[in-house]
Design a protein around this nucleic acid. Structure first.
Lengths: 349, 349
DNA sequence: CTGAAAGCGCTTACAG
DNA sequence: CTGAAAGCGCTTACAG
């Protein structure tokens, strides 16, 4: 701690102030310059000197003042995370992955929830500029929509996650095609051959991609699709109704259903059960999202595709750091692999 | 913009640097001191001088460097938000309310998702100390548990939201008693007199408080409770089973059910419907949480109690700012009122 | 009412 | 290998 804190400026908190690099230097009997270099592992010096400084820093519980450092390095070692997700279903995992990965590099993340309101998003953006964040992560709820803010005149690196990425931008998305393919291939491997697909709303790009993955998996194994893909809302009701269409009294039934999300799958399983059939024995079901609250609560528990938002946030962060460091980063959208989480509804166990 | 940027230090981004207060002062033909005062609305000066400075700042698109300011004022104008909520159900609304309210005061919020892991929480706390945040908001998932971190040796103001608050701490919680009372009173006003309560797990404090509110409302209007309170999981299955107990063939039925959360209510409504009764005509149902994904998707849509996390976050933030400013803040836990969101399941419309 | 100067706590050419 | 000095962009006693 600094001993001579006689001249505390007014606004200061009256507490004992932390040790500064000057204190460390004095204790280690070196110059501030050397102390700085020892602490940052730059420059050359005898191991002995470096050690002495390190020890002093430790003894004083020295923590470099990030504002002083930021001022001279022209970097704040902070990032902004802008999102239009009100609920956190997508954003919180992304934020968690991002901020944990950044923490190791001494970077922290400001969260800006725009509440889906363009005016607020604009204010958030402005606030991030004023805080001089080093870069920005834009996180969305769907891959075919961006936020409402105009980023064109923005003078800092930006990365898009789970949101539409403007041309020439850097983005990270879950691989919906691959995820769907994984789900359907899993069912095929388990011996199902007659697989229906109950999808979300047609105007979501993700829905078309998942449909594509469904067909791709079938094709690879020479299976025929079961009937037409049934599009509808992202709701249990849709799954419920679709079940009634698929398992109508007359005609053949599918032995498995790949659902566009977990809520649809939930409705599907409920309907199948009510109709007197068993999941997974009679019909195997796989969902998409791996939203615990649905997937784990369904009876039987739902096998589902996880989009790996945690990793998405992490990768986006690393990319952003590279851009901030001035390294050239491929201006492209990267699709990150999904992961299948096997529970009971697919009949794997 | 500074014209003479010959001497850019190495690590700097090569972009044109922003205008500094020196540029503003020069343009307005005043000293830096005066410029600072004009911009911060401190000190006395002719309106004309102040205006000249303001205009110059605007023309140069001047934004004060927060690191320089922070360095001298010994304040970072940032807060940390630590949470153990993995999913964001509670935290994101709190974070949104908090950060929006803070934005107006030039304060931004670092999000630290601890993923419910003590080691990570500790790291997050350390990171926030190193970033020199001015204060901390601790946000939890339940009101009778804190985070795992030890805050005792922490040298900064802390506020707890939706989490257990240590003795002598400052906290903000939803008023579970009041919320439950509101729900039940609402049912009574609608003419229901035979109201059952299907609650969550007994070991949650919130469950006991909501039970208390249930009894309080009944007492006030001289109603008798319908049977015993039925405790169980926070699940649809629990609501479903409880319905079967309440509406067994023999004996009288309740004409309304107050459920401990929206998932229970959801199961309740499903069961009632399957049993051939109508919601709300035969039985009115009210939930708790106002979790859109459940409340709005239920048929009929669920009337529910909203805990106002947004406001909780906002209030916590204002409190924290007061503490940071050295004002004395009452060391107590404040319960914030809940709000009833009327949809169809209660029969109000 | 206004300004020159010191200083916040660091990093980094520059010099030895 | 090490250090004295300048400077990052502000605020704020202190002096006039």
């Amino acid at each position: 701690m600094t001993i001579d804190n006689e001249a505390q400026p007014q606004g200061a908190r009256p507490k004992i102030s932390r040790a500064t690099i000057r204190d460390v230097a004095m204790m280690a009997k070196v110059s501030v310059t050397t102390a700085s270099r020892a602490l940052n592992d730059t420059g050359r010096m005898t191991e002995h000197t470096r050690m002495r400084v390190r020890t002093a820093a430790e003894q004083l519980d020295y923590r470099p003042n990030p504002m002083a450092r930021g001022l001279v390095q022209r970097r704040s070692f902070t990032l902004g995370l802008l999102t239009n997700d009100t609920y956190g279903r997508f954003t919180l995992p992304v934020a968690a992955g991002l901020s944990m990965a950044m923490m190791d590099r001494g970077v922290s993340v400001f969260l800006c929830a725009g509440e889906n309101d363009p005016a607020r998003e604009q204010l958030n953006l402005r606030a991030m500029e004023e805080k001089r964040v080093d870069g920005l992560v834009i996180a969305g709820k769907r891959i075919d929509r961006g936020l409402s803010i105009d980023l064109s005149s923005l003078d800092m690196p930006v990365v898009h996650v789970n949101a539409a990425c403007p041309n020439g931008g850097v983005g990270f998305l879950p691989d919906d095609v691959g995820g769907a393919e994984m789900a359907v291939t899993h069912l095929i491997r388990l011996g199902r051959h007659s697989i229906a697909h109950v999808a979300g709303p047609r105007d979501f790009l993700a829905v078309l991609l998942r449909e594509k993955g469904y067909f791709k998996a079938l094709e690879k194994s020479g299976c025929e699709p079961f009937g037409e893909v049934i599009f509808g809302n992202w709701s249990e009701a849709h799954g419920f109704e679709a079940a009634h269409r698929l398992f109508a009294a007359h005609g053949p039934h599918p032995d498995a259903v790949f659902c566009g999300n977990d809520q649809i799958a939930r409705g599907m399983i409920d309907a199948i059960t009510i109709m007197g059939m068993r999941v997974p024995e009679d019909v195997a079901v796989v969902g998409f999202d791996n939203w615990e609250i649905f997937a784990a609560a369904t009876r039987p528990a739902l096998t589902s595709i996880d989009m790996g938002f945690h990793d998405l946030g992490k990768r986006a962060g690393f990319s952003l750091l590279s851009m901030i460091d001035g390294q050239s980063v491929e201006r492209a959208v990267t699709k990150m692999p999904c992961r299948i989480v096997v529970r009971q509804s697919c009949g794997a166990t």
